[in-house]
Amino acid sequence: MLDDRARMEAAKKEKVEQILAEFQLQEEDLKKVMRRMQKEMDRGLRLETHEEASVKMLPTYVRSTPEGSEVGDFLSLDLGGTNFRVMLVKVGEGEEGQWSVKTKHQMYSIPEDAMTGTAEMLFDYISECISDFLDKHQMKHKKLPLGFTFSFPVRHEDIDKGILLNWTKGFKASGAEGNNVVGLLRDAIKRRGDFEMDVVAMVNDTVATMISCYYEDHQCEVGMIVGTGCNACYMEEMQNVELVEGDEGRMCVNTEWGAFGDSGELDEFLLEYDRLVDESSANPGQQLYEKLIGGKYMGELVRLVLLRLVDENLLFHGEASEQLRTRGAFETRFVSQVESDTGDRKQIYNILSTLGLRPSTTDCDIVRRACESVSTRAAHMCSAGLAGVINRMRESRSEDVMRITVGVDGSVYKLHPSFKERFHASVRRLTPSCEITFIESEEGSGRGAALVSAVACKKACMLGQ
């Protein structure tokens, strides 16, 4: 009897593995994704193909990295998701002549009506938060230079001027797309009239992360975010950046690689679950690469896999709870928690219980395998993109072996128990001629924006502006 049951459990697990095998990517698959990513990057950089390229390769006008001589107080704003952060950054000489960066910050959550109302409502709310922060720190009387981390696709015309191309991540505030974001912020500050600010720089969160990590390690020339969304930036040779005049030196390019796949480059790798996630998203047909990796989508992918296993009578005796059938019910943090389970399955059992399920031991094991399959594919897909960037940098610099540091931020990278190990191992397999160091950014977005502002202020002083 026991043997029969054991055989049935083994057969069930084997069927589960057959279904989950769809998520496995072979090294040849990853090399294919990497080569296609490089081709799209090239198209994004070139003037004649930029418009139709899915990977936009947006110039950021960040050319210099901090040298350690900029000092002063800077205000930093960070808008990239449902939370908005205001930070005071003091850049100065530390002990023994070292450079020191001290920060104080406060988080504000953005109400739904500000995210989806008008641009005026959104930026009025942001300036209200700045006003509140300055009151708390008794700094209303000071006109501070301000660095703005704005983590949406922007076409820069200068370091302090950028046109919002399109909202992502659930934002829909009308009247912002096609307009200068810094102008919208300046107008809102003017409307309030109770404080003055000098907006000197606007950067993407990947750029802010790279600059913040450069402060720790001067070989950091790539910034990457794996959180709600997924994106990367890197220092490109100016001669390859056709959208900006000049051939000397390097400029940081914001790849906006989340949109890779929007022209069909990933079609052969998309599964039924991916198509369902895409169809029910706020932007169907867009940001397809990001939807395979980002935390906004990972939990939902797992939920759809679990429903398939229920329908195949391989999980929960073929019956799903009402909660499990509800879109968004299986949160991405559950994926991390399930994979963090120590082996007694308590954590998995508790999560499934909150979803109205009474799982068996085998159910718990199957749910864990589903989570591992989805998150491992995410790590491997992400590795193909980064390997594409790094191999490109090595080739354009004609280096036999390139040493490089990548600064990384984002909740999936930082909080998932195995993502970074799987990701690092896969990147290294795909970049055999590179020695890569990964560092995690601390308060990256805010500190990085302030350091970019410090560079901009120093330049302005040198130019006598």
Rank of each mutant, 00 (worst) to 15 (best):
A449Q: 02
V310P: 07
P417L: 11
G448K: 00
R447N: 04
R5C: 06
N254R: 02
D267N: 10
S281K: 04
A425C: 09
S131Y: 06
E268M: 09
H416T: 12
M402E: 13
L122F: 00
K12P: 13
E245H: 06
S69Y: 10
V71C: 15
H137W: 07
R369F: 11
L134P: 01
I126C: 01
K140R: 09
C434K: 08
M139S: 06
E216V: 15
A425T: 09
P432Y: 09
Y108T: 02
S340R: 11
D262V: 07
M37C: 08
S174I: 02
M462R: 15
Q26A: 10
V16P: 08
D341T: 14
P145Q: 15
G117I: 01
L315H: 03
T437W: 13
Q98M: 09
N313M: 15
G44R: 04
S54L: 04
G246Q: 10
E245M: 05
A460H: 15
S69C: 09
P145H: 13
E196M: 05
L352D: 05
L45P: 05
E221A: 11
L144Y: 09
D4H: 07
V412P: 13
G261W: 04
K32Q: 12
G385P: 04
R46V: 06
K420W: 05
E120Y: 09
D205K: 05
A456H: 15
V222L: 14
Q347A: 11
Q38N: 09
H141F: 05
K90V: 13
E17A: 12
D4E: 02
V181F: 00
E440R: 13
D341K: 13
L165C: 05
D4G: 09
G170Q: 01
R429M: 10
I19M: 09
G162Y: 01
T405Y: 09
S441I: 03
C461T: 12
D113F: 10
K90A: 14
A450C: 00
E290N: 05
G92P: 11
D132C: 03
N166Q: 14
E256M: 02
L386E: 05
H50R: 04
T228A: 04
E399P: 07
A450V: 00
S426P: 05
A454Y: 01
S383A: 10
D344E: 06
E399Q: 13
A6K: 00
A329L: 13
E279V: 14
L314H: 13
N166G: 07
E319K: 06
E300W: 04
L309E: 04
E256A: 01
R368M: 08
L30Q: 07
L134V: 09
G81Y: 05
H137V: 13
D160K: 00
Q337I: 08
D365Q: 10
K13H: 07
N283E: 03
D124T: 03
S212N: 03
E339W: 04
R325S: 14
R43T: 13
P59I: 00
I225G: 01
H380T: 13
H218G: 15
G175V: 01
M8N: 08
L266H: 13
V16T: 11
R5A: 09
E96P: 11
L276I: 02
R429C: 09
Q18I: 06
A21G: 06
L88I: 01
E177R: 03
P59V: 05
S360K: 08
D247T: 15
V310C: 08
G328E: 13
L165I: 07
N254E: 00
F123D: 03
K414S: 14
L75H: 02
G147T: 07
L288D: 06
A384G: 08
D113C: 09
T206P: 09
T332N: 06
S433V: 12
Q286M: 14
I110H: 05
T354S: 12
P66M: 14
D158E: 10
S433N: 12
R63D: 15
A188Q: 01
A320K: 13
C220P: 04
E395T: 14
W99N: 15
T228Q: 12
K15R: 14
L315G: 12
L309N: 11
Y234I: 07
R358H: 09
P284N: 14
L357G: 11
D400K: 10
V86F: 06
A21R: 10
G385K: 00
L463Y: 11
R36E: 11
